[in-house]
């Protein structure tokens, strides 16, 4: 059961701030807010940042695989391909293609022509990166 003061509170509370609020021009506020929103710097969302990380990881894999393909296809001259990761060295060309397929990327080279990213010119590299961006 509410007493008199509680009833008074209920009656007065909705009036708090009413006069000040009446002076606010909602149209002006809307214009100012939308202008600020348009002017704000583009902030990458978490999924966009994650996509960049994925892109970087995919690029690293492509570089490694491309380098491995080139080393495997090179006539053996007795040198050790020390820079190529062991796992990639051990893969056959077909297996490397399968790895690329699993990455859902088109191989940057035709099946039978063993080249790496080093062999791509700037335009081809740009196209590759664009295709990776989906």
């Amino acid at each position: 059961m509410m007493d008199e003061r509680e009833q008074m509170l209920e009656q007065l509370a909705p009036r708090l701030g009413a006069e000040a609020a009446d002076r606010i021009d909602a149209e002006h506020v809307a214009a100012a807010v939308t202008a600020r929103l348009r002017a704000r710097p583009v902030r990458r969302q978490w999924w966009q940042r994650a996509r960049l990380v994925q892109l970087a990881a995919a690029a690293a894999v492509v570089l490694a695989v491309g380098f491995g393909i080139r080393e495997l296809a090179r006539p053996s001259d007795g040198r050790q391909a020390g820079a190529v990761p062991v796992e990639i060295q051990e893969l056959a060309v077909a297996e490397l293609s399968e790895v690329l397929d699993s990455l859902r990327m088109d191989a940057p080279v035709s099946d039978l022509v063993p080249v790496g990213l080093d062999d791509l010119d700037e335009n081809e590299l740009t196209q590759l990166l664009k295709s990776m961006e989906g």
Binding site: G17, A21, I24, A26, V29, A30, T34
Partner: peptide, 26 residues
């Protein structure tokens, strides 16, 4: 966004004015 501002500006202003905003209410 503009529609949401139009709809909620007055109640928000009342809330903020009662919470302590004065000449800086806008």
């Amino acid at each position: 966004a503009a529609a949401l501002v139009a709809r909620h500006t007055r109640p928000l202003a009342r809330f903020l004015a009662a919470a302590g905003a004065e000449e800086d209410l806008d």
